[in-house]
Design a protein around this nucleic acid. Sequence first.
DNA 1: GCATTCACAATCGCG
DNA 2: TTGTGAATGC
Length: 745
Amino acid sequence: MISLLSGLNPEQLEAVTLPYQSALILAGAGSGKTRVLTTRIAHLIHSGQVSPNGILAVTFTNKASREMMARIAAMLPINTRGMWIGTFHGLCHRMLRAHYQDAGLPKTFQILDIGDQQAIIKRMLKDLAVDEKAFPPRQIQWFINHAKEEGLRASQVEAHDSFTRRMLEFYRVYETLCMREGMVDFAELLLRCYELLTRNEILRHHYRDRFSHILVDEFQDTNRLQYRWLKLLAGVDLPRSAVVFAVGDDDQSIYAFRGAHTGNMQDLEHDFAIQKIIKLEQNYRSHGNILEAANALIEHNRGRLGKNLWTSEGHGEPVRVYNAVTDFDEAAFIVDEIKALHSEGVALSDIALLYRSNAQSRVLEHSLFNASLSYRVYGGMRFFERQEIKHALAYLRLIAHPDDDHALLRVINFPPRGIGARTLEQLQDEAKLHQTSLWSAALNKSGGETTAISDEGKAKKGLPSFVHLIMMMQRACANLPLPETIRYMLTHSGLLSHYGLERDGAERLENLNELINAATSFVHEAEDDSLVAFLSHASLEGGEHQADHHQDALQLMTVHAAKGLEFHTVFLSGLEEGLFPHENSRNEVNGLEEERRLMYVAMTRARRRLYLSFSQSRMLHGQTHYNIASRFITEIPDHLLKWLQPLSKVNSESFRSVSEQAGFTFGRNSWGQSAGKEAIQERLTANSSEQLSRWRIGQNVSHAKFGTGVIINYQGEGADIRVQVQFNRAGTKWLLLEYAKLTPL
DNA sequence: GCATTCACAATCGCG
DNA sequence: TTGTGAATGC
């Protein structure tokens, strides 16, 4: 017991040992939030206040819930597998599977991921003969999802204009389509579950009685529906309600665009009669200067709950700022700094390159590639979203549930087997006529089961062969374990041979193989190893590829993706008006404040060293844009910043053009306000007047130990000045000018 | 049925 | 600049 609670600071301890009452924990970045959450659970169980069955802990990401389970398992000798710890979607899914009948779902209901959903909407538009340009699928998707996230069915949305009425029509049709095929999208998982509990009093009471402690991670990210779900589950209106332990940070709320409602924090205070908000402000991650800078920045936001991070560590290094001429220059600077850091012993994997939008990674990747630095870009295509995997999953879906029109359409002619648009059209007409699924129509058309089976081996083409294929797979699946089913399906569907012949098919084959591996480990780990369970798993777990994870590589990702992570060094690039804060955020309610929180999240990822950089010109969408530095830089007090200006820029004539360009671009600030314009101009001038010395790029030098070489770069100022020398024999080194005792040649 | 061409759009993205 | 989807040609 002592070991469980030891090492907690007073606030953490208070939170962990709170008596039976609902609580809101304001946990700043790096304040040991996860530790508090997991220790709280362990403490509740260990002290006998609740059994593991009485706890429901909910997170947003699978990663977070896995980590939570692992940490609890490390603290207590219990099996965490049966516990109700998971994501909102995962837990709702669990309830819906357990009570599918009460929820009005077929036993084999399938989960739609974002891509499936879009495909269905497109199919619907085609059916309705609606022009995609007039009503972009993306927009319809957004409308439907947002309505659901607000907890609204089509009948509950108010429509005051013709556009909304049209959207609602789509919402309704989409809904009937999904229900007919037994498909449930992500938002539907939550809404269904919520409605199930609302309608079914017995179930509601069952779960209310079962869960006495509900713990919520990242509470600031909850949307309205999730909050209502929590309220319902806790039963706030009942005398014997559960208590909620919510952990969150309003300053790190960066997901308003996907429905997060920070007002939930105030609502929680009120609805759950929160007596006291506990603030965790001691930061165990970053050095003082970084924290001070982040604090100063976030101070510019209004209506905060209020929080100031502090550390018992020292100030550490100043926040470095670099003003680049071009995006290429910015990337080159970052590469140079990385090389220096790496040679000083910082692991590449402990360095992150963050940016506001994905498009910015390209320039960085280019420079990193040329410098032979290994890197990993996060947020690309996920494993289960790849087309070859999607195709394979479609076959599996048909095995489990042949009435899945969506899956059928995906693979009925893939690999090509001579079923063209014409056959398909007939099939769809037939299905429409009899109000049945495409599969039933196909059965009818191909002469029914008996014919297809008696044709065994002969039918190679057309509809009968497809019908035969699927039935054959279904029979095989009944007797084989999951991985073998998949192997069988891959071979007999022709996917393997198809990709085997394709030009770039090797990687796809690898992925298909990986699918068998994924199924193998799924069968080992999951309680329910059925095909349907595996399909749900594939949709709910995006399937982040864990391969080559151990390799020491730089981490490239958006600021959003970096939330929750930490690194020794963080490079935050593209700090320009229009990019960060992003142009589009101007049209959003409180958009600028959300951008500022995003910046805050980015800064607080750094443990020891933080670089902020911006470029005066940047290639975007094939056009050169001229930008001014982000206002966020000017919102950080000067004494925390250290402006870097490599002398290479000062000495070359490029610097002159930089100042001129800067003057020119200030006039083009699309944001209207030009906060900090003077300050930046001032710094530019200050930097240009100093730092002219006998040392310059291209200067040949001699070193006592390394021999002769040439200066290829340098940075810093005053006593801190460092030069990068390419030696003839000893390679490239960064040297402190003051100590290196270089002799000019 | 498949390959090539053209127009168009372009934040962030958990499950 | 790059990726996507529809239109077009073989």
